[in-house]
Amino acid sequence: MADILIVGAGPTGLTAALSLAALGITPRIIEARTNASNLSRAVGLLPGSMTIFDHLGIAERVRGEAVTIEEARILRDGHLAVDLRLDADPDPNVRLLSLPQDRTEAILAEALAERGVTVEYGKACKGLIQDESGVTVAIEGGEEIRAHEVLGADGAKSAVRQALGLKAEGIELPEDWSIADVELAEPVPPATTIHLNGAHDAVFMIPMERSRVRLVSNTSDALATFGPGLAIARVRREAKFRISVKQVPTYRVGHVALAGDAAHTHSPVGGRGMNLGIDDAAHFAEALSDGSLAGYSAARHAVGAHTIGLSERARKTLLGGSGTRRTVGVTLMRLASRNPALARKLARTIILG
């Protein structure tokens, strides 16, 4: 019997596994995919995640590959409206980093393997049964895994959550969003740029490498919304997606807990989704280690609700409602960015929440 089984080997599951291993608890970790992901997906890493990575001994590896985002720029209908330094805080840890998710996952998996734990790929959870002493997880193909505790870190369509009969509560945004992972012919500055077009359309450009950027738009075509001006060498990937702003009512049922997108989802505005999952994972490992799992659900539900609220306020200010709300929000940010003290406070708020 495994002491702990983690379902899902994204950043949340891998962080949970590595955190447990660092605490002397050897988990099993399974993943429905047949191999590691090569998709960039989420890219932003906040100071809280880097503190966790410091404790896990991988922060320097991450910093060695990541781009430190030095500025945030907002363009309104092609004109620069806000230019805010994000690296002005005297604390060098108050920084926003950008790294493709597949590289974050690879670094976590390498560190986990160094501790003797490898991801078991091609093992999809098909259901589970609980009793007083633990959980039996059914794996596609007929295998069963018995564990004292299970962590569902298997994403927004979580099979573990479905097996628990839990429903994420909230709303689904009606519009299509889109992403593009693009290699450029020339290097880009280490700045996040937000292009606001008209009253509603927007596209975010986030550097991931010296000449590689992520575009995210609240329209169905990120490249078209960005418009001319990108010297594109290669489009690695384009995709459309819908956004759910949801959270489960409880993060733990019996011997089964949820973390990451299995427990909560929100818009990518603010870049907090992956970081919230990493934080869930570290807290789950600590709670399991010190015997405080009974408080895990309430504590993480509160943090999740707070983060969803931050993301929604930012989304509605920049992307939702009327053009007037967007104008007011951008104007206030422009005024703050011109005052050094207010600019540092604003940057700190954006980075730390």
Rank of each mutant, 00 (worst) to 15 (best):
I308A: 05
I350W: 14
A314E: 09
R313A: 08
M333A: 15
S292G: 12
A347Y: 03
L346C: 02
A282C: 11
A341C: 06
D279Q: 14
L346V: 08
S337Y: 05
E312V: 05
G321Y: 01
L293Y: 02
T307Y: 01
A343R: 01
L310A: 04
L332P: 01
R315E: 12
G304Y: 07
L310E: 11
S322P: 04
L346E: 03
V330Q: 07
A302N: 05
A298S: 15
T331L: 14
R315V: 03
G291F: 04
A294N: 10
F284G: 01
R325S: 09
R348I: 13
H301Q: 15
L332W: 06
A305W: 05
M333E: 04
G323W: 03
R326I: 02
I350G: 11
I308C: 05
R325V: 13
H306P: 00
E286N: 03
R300T: 12
G320S: 01
A302C: 01
G295E: 14
H283Y: 07
R325P: 07
R334T: 14
S322A: 11
V330E: 09
A299E: 12
N339I: 06
A299P: 01
I308Q: 06
R326Q: 11
H283S: 08
S311W: 06
M333H: 00
E286H: 11
R348C: 09
H306N: 05
V330N: 14
G291E: 11
K316L: 14
H301T: 14
A341E: 11
R326E: 04
R348W: 14
K316W: 11
A343D: 03
L318R: 08
A294W: 06
D290G: 10
T349E: 13
G304S: 13
A287N: 09
T349D: 12
S337Q: 02
L346A: 02
R300C: 15
R300G: 15
R348A: 10
T327Y: 06
L319G: 10
I308S: 08
S337V: 02
T349S: 15
L332N: 01
L342R: 06
L318A: 13
T317G: 13
A347G: 15
T327E: 11
R338C: 13
V330P: 10
I278K: 01
